[in-house]
Amino acid sequence: MTEPVAIILLSILAGAVALDTTAAFQMMFSQPLVAGTCAGLILGHPETGLLIGTALQLVWVAALPVGGALFPDTGPAAVVGVGIAVLLISRGTAGGWAVSSGLFVALGVAAAGSIVTMRLRRQNVRLAEKALSSVEKGDLGGVRRAILQALGFRFMSAAVLSAVVLVVTVPLLARAFHGVVLSEFPALLWAAPIAAGTILLIARGRFERVLLGVGVLVGVLMVAVT
C-alpha cells in the first residue's frame, strides 16, 4: 500500500472512530486499544497497532467524556499514532523512534482534538437553534438535518486533522531520525504506572484500596507462575 493511500484510509478511520467518542453509538470503537489495533490491521502491522493502542489505553484509562468537560480525543489520536509509527518504520526509521514518535504525536493530537471538539460543541449551539427555528416555522426536517450536520462536522474535523498531522509529521520525523538508532521504546512500562497512578485516585475507599493491593499480590503470583 502506498503512503498516500494509507493516509487516506487512516483519515477515514479517524473520522469514523471520532463519531463513536460521544456523537453516536459510544460502543468503545473509539477506545485507543480498538482504534489503534484497527489502524495497525489496515496497515498490515497489527502488532504495532496493538502495542501503541494498549499503551495509549493505559495512559487515558480514566479520561472520560463527561458532560462539558475537556477530554482528550483518544480514538483519532491512536489512529494517527499507529499511522506515524508504521509509516516511519516503512521509511526505515528505527523501531524505538517510530513507536515513541507515534505515542508522543498521539498525545498532541488528543489535546488538539479536545480543543476541536469544544469548538464543534459551541457550533452545535447554532445547529440546535437553527433546528428549533426550523421547527417553529413548520419545517419539521430541521432536527434530522442538525443531527446529520453535527455528525458530518465531527467526522470531517477528525479526518482532516489526522490527515494534516500525518502528511506533515511523517516526512519531518523520518528526516530527523534518519540513521539514528533506538532499538526499542518500552511503551507499556511507560504507560502502566500512569494507569495505576490514575486509578489510585479513583480507588478512594478502603475496600477499593485493599482490592488494589490484592490485585498487586495476584499479579506477582501470576508473573511468578508464568
Binding site: A192, G215, M222
Partner: peptide, 15 residues
C-alpha cells in the same frame, strides 16, 4: 469499582 481497583493492581505488576 472493586474489580477496577483489583485489575489496576494486576495490570501494574504484569505490565
Amino acid at each position: 469499582r472493586g474489580l477496577l481497583a483489583f485489575t489496576a493492581g494486576l495490570v501494574l505488576v504484569v505490565a
